[in-house]
Structures are given as structure tokens and as C-alpha cells.
Design a protein around this nucleic acid. Structure first.
Lengths: 147, 147, 147, 147
DNA sequence: GTGGTCTAGACCACG
DNA sequence: GTGGTCTAGACCACG
């Protein structure tokens, strides 16, 4: 499991870890029921203190994304909490707007944005397929993983 | 000039202001040569401390986006700093990837993402046109605005 | 014997078990002289580690509520330890105060609290009667129970 | 503002502080808009580390009970979040049941419980009235308060 | 060994 | 001065 945090990023490290774990779940690299690395291990991988890693886990637990059992470890919840359609759309539109502004500021013609997006979606799908193959061969490979 | 900051956002307020000003420039609501509100005024509009507003301006000056002429005020630079093609692409792809993951996590079918994006781009263009009309009628209205 | 523990409760699991056993004794479902399940069995019922169950038993032994006879098992003491009147009142008043504050915080009119209490007391008494009938039919059913 | 925590209580200290603050709000000793003592001050009063006090505040902020503005302090929210009727009743009944069992275990006749409750409710109302008088004379007395 | 809590002390963003 | 984050290291409940 690969996690990258950037201490110079203004977003607090623990929130960066939150994002990374959400990303791994979205990619399917972490699936419902999977065990996460221990907090200590997470700390080492991200080169942060154990407490900081624990705080990220706590955050995700509160959201219902993870479930921890003391003495046993932390697991991806079987059921991700669902937002309603309105909320989802609001969040997504704000992100799309930010993207459009960023592209424009960078001088990227907005006409090219659609095709660029399509390419990244395709890449995402390939990654998910690879993760699915991985999981079929070696479920629960997390914890002794990469790095 | 409308600026919105969210104190509960983990991104520091001064960086939120930086983003907002970049956004106004991207939208064309602020154009090269335009004068910005005074730091004091910016603080009032955003309901933040003068120091916080000053930090945002300082940041944009460092990037070359703004230019301060002592005794006259702060202005949008004639030349926005340009990144090279590689850098631009790297930044944009990271943003696209984040968007794809977010959409997936939210349960939004990736197939719908392209059309949603197109809709936001159209909206952005309309906003730019409106801002352009405004600017033609009332150039440099920024800086002595609300209170 | 039914025992429920909630791992997400901040109260340590072994103390939750302590509470539950006290509750069973209060209800009369466990009576002086009754034999408790083995530590191993308790662990299975509560889905907790054997050590955790053992700690709960140890705690109750310390209080004099339970009594272990080596080679025979753990039994409910013939004499429950008695606190003096002052102590009892102090404990109860603290609990009543917590209840009042909770009801108020929840927005439940304090006027309704008395009648709600009466209803729960009635329910408690009915449960005790049911438990007494059960015990008459099937004394000591505890300890070789489920698995 | 008086806060008491007991380090030997199995409930984590930060949750004890959470309870105490909820209690002060319920009593009306802290009212919507009131400023809380600083985290540093809270730490001193409770004889705990600043971080522990901060964690309690964080918890209440997440619940919507408090609202903190960096650099300015922490305030009681204007609107406490409301649970629906079902939830409220469920929580309250569980507390009532626990009370009944406790009284029974302590050997207090359940018949006396109603009148005892009434007495504590009266006491609570008197305390609230006293707090209201206090607040009228000296609003925002918190922060340099008792000890 | 697993996560949870706590302390002491540092540095930072914000007012 | 205010709260937020982070570290290093300790102790504890639980498995």
C-alpha cells in the first residue's frame, strides 16, 4: 500500500492521509473487510508520528468508512455511508468549477479538458482492474505491502 | 468584487483568498492592470484580519501575479507568470485524477462526468462574458467597493 | 444468560461486562448461590477475549459480589456487599442529576420525566417476575448455556 | 466556571470534559454565543494537558455544540443540533433503565425513586434560575471565573 | 501486538 | 494571545 504525504502542503498531514486512504478505497485497492496496516505501520510508511496516523484513522472511523477493533486492527467498513443525490451533486459541481478555473488559469484551452478527462477516467479504470486482479491472487496483501 | 472564505476549511484562510483572487483573474473579473482593493478593504470583505489579507497579497506578489507600487496600490500584473507545458500538464492531471476519484467515491457514474464537465464549462464561459460586459461599463470598479 | 457489550462505547469492555452481570443480579436472573458461566464461556457469549472476561470476574470478586471456589467455578455471593445509606444516596443522586441534565439537553420536558420513569420501573418489575418464573422451572440453567 | 475531572474514572478525561461542558450548557451556565475559557485555561482548570482539553472542544465542535474561530476563541453555538423524537426517546429510555437497575442494586426501593427524582428536578431548576440571574448581572463572566 | 489516551513541548496560522 | 497540528514517548485496555 502506497501512501504519500507532503509536509510542505498546507493541508494538515492527517487530512492528507485521510485523502489517500479514501483514494485507495475508491480505486478498490482497499475493499470492504480488508484490514489496514497498523497505525504504527502507517506512521512509518508516511514518515509521520503514530499519533498523526491515528488521527487520520479516527477521522475515517467517524465518517463510517473504517471500523476499528481494539487489539485486532482497523478494517474497511462493509457499508460506505451514502450521501443523497443533492449533496453529491453539490460537492461534485464545486469540484468541477474549481477544475475549470484551474485549467483556465493554467492557460489550458477548455476545449481540451473533456478529452483529457476521458483519458484519466480510462487510466483509473485500468488501475481498478489491476487492483481487482491483484486482490483475486492475493487478498489482504495490505500490511506487508510495497515501499 | 466578491470573495468568500470558509473558516472551517482546513486550507488556511490566506490561501483561500489567494485562490479566490486567482479565480477572479481567471474569470476576467480582474484584468491585467486592474487595481485591487486595499489590504484593509480586502480584510473587511472577507471578514478576516488585515494581516491575513496582507499575507494573501504577499503570496501572489511572490508568484508574480500581483505587483505593488508603493503609494499607489496593488495591481494585477500585465504578464501572468507562465509555467511550461510539462508543469501545466502535471498539475492538471493531478486535479483530474482527484476529480475522478471523488466522483467514484460519491457513487457518480464516471460516464456522466464528461457531460457534467461540459455543463460547468459552459456556465464558466457565460460568467466570463457577463464579467466582460461589466468591466466595459465600469472599469476599475474594484477597490472602492462595498463596505 | 444474555450479555451485550458495545466495543464502540468508551467504557472499557470488561467494565461493561461487570455492569451487565450486576444488572442480571439486580434483575434476579442471577441469584445468590447461582453458578456463573466459565470465563471461557463468558468470553464466547460476549465475543470478547477470555482475558477480558476474566478481568470482569476478578473485578466483581474484589467487590465481593462473586466468589470463586477453585475447581468448582464462580458463584454469586450469598451476601451482596452493602454500602451505607449515605454512600448509596450519594451515588443515586449523582445518577439522577445526570439523568435530569440529559433529559434537559435532549429537549425532553422535565415534567414528563416522572411518568416515563414510572413506566420503566413497571417494565423492570415485569421482567423480574418473568425471570423468577424461569428460575423456578429451570434453576441454574446458567453456565452450560449457548455456544 | 467549574469543571471537575477524575483521572481514575475509566471514562477518558477528554470525554469527561465533554460531559461537563454539556452539563454547563444544559444548566444555562453557558449560553448560546458565550465564549468558553481558552483551551489553555481549560487545561489548567481541569489539571490536564492543553491537548486533552482541545480534544474535548474538538468533539463538541463536531457535534455542532461549539463553534471555534481561530485566534478568537471558542463559542457556544447559537443552535444546538436536534435529534428526532425517536432518537431522543431511545437514549432517554436506556438511561432510565440503567437508573432503575442501579437503584435496585443499591437496595433503594423503587417506590422512592419517583420522589427522589422530583427533588433533583427541583434542584436543577433552582440552579438554572440562579445561573440566569448571574448571567443577567454579569454576562460572559466565564474565563476569569471561579475556581 | 493492536489501538486509545495522555503529556510536554514545539511550531504555525490567525487576530 | 487564540486555536491547530505535530512529535516523542509513556502507559493502558484488549486480543
Amino acid at each position: 500500500m502506497i501512501l504519500e504525504v507532503d509536509p510542505s502542503n498546507p493541508v494538515p498531514i492527517y487530512l492528507q492521509i485521510v485523502e489517500q486512504i479514501r483514494r485507495l478505497i475508491a480505486l478498490g485497492a482497499l475493499r470492504p473487510g480488508d484490514r489496514l496496516p497498523t497505525v504504527r505501520d502507517l506512521g512509518v510508511r508516511c514518515r509521520v508520528n503514530r499519533n498523526t496516523a491515528a488521527r487520520a484513522i479516527l477521522e475515517l472511523e467517524r465518517e463510517g468508512v473504517l471500523r476499528t477493533r481494539v487489539g485486532q486492527g482497523t478494517f474497511v467498513s462493509e457499508e460506505a455511508p451514502r450521501l443523497d443525490r443533492m449533496e453529491r451533486n453539490g460537492i461534485l459541481e464545486a469540484s468541477l468549477d474549481r477544475l475549470v478555473i484551474e485549467a483556465h488559469s493554467l492557460g489550458v484551452p477548455l476545449e481540451e479538458l473533456g478529452s483529457k478527462l476521458t483519458r484519466r477516467i480510462d487510466r483509473f479504470k485500468r488501475q481498478r482492474k489491476a487492483a481487482a486482479r491483484q486482490a483475486a491472487v492475493n487478498p489482504l496483501r495490505v500490511g506487508k505491502g510495497a515501499r
